[in-house]
Amino acid sequence: MLRSRLINLPKTVKRNISTNIPALQKATDPIQQLFLDKLREYKSKSTGGKLVDAGPEILKEHQSEIDKLNVQYGGDKGVDMTQFPQFKFVDPAVDVGSVDKK
């Protein structure tokens, strides 16, 4: 029944549906199930974009690397490096008197 409905779909849609169906089902392999459980556990721990299970020495090293990158790419204290830079283009003044009139 599903195959008869898929006959009218483009080939790329058929391919995407057929490759995603096994991913939507429950894992039958115990190793695969363990992997999926670990992914779900990691997802639940990684809230707010923070490092997962990081000790104080890892956080200190992470902050020092961020500080080095900020200095290298022009960030200073008080500069928000997550914002896109604002560009201001000013047209140069043109001296019309020096243009040769013919």
Rank of each mutant, 00 (worst) to 15 (best):
N70W: 01
D37Q: 04
D80H: 00
N16E: 14
S18G: 09
N16C: 13
G97M: 09
V13H: 12
L2T: 04
F35E: 11
V99F: 12
D95G: 03
G97L: 09
A54W: 02
D29I: 01
K60C: 05
I7F: 14
V52H: 04
Q86S: 15
R15H: 13
S44R: 08
K11H: 11
S98N: 14
L69W: 03
L2Q: 07
A54K: 00
L34C: 09
V79D: 05
P30M: 07
Q83I: 09
K11V: 09
G48M: 01
K50A: 14
Q63R: 03
E57G: 03
S44I: 07
D53M: 03
K50D: 09
Y42I: 07
L36Q: 12
I58N: 03
G78M: 00
S4F: 04
K11F: 12
L39G: 09
K88P: 10
K45T: 05
K11P: 06
Q83M: 11
L9S: 08
S44P: 01
I17L: 13
L51I: 10
Y73M: 00
K68I: 06
V99A: 15
V71C: 07
S98W: 08
S44E: 08
A27S: 09
K45A: 13
G78T: 01
K38R: 06
L2N: 07
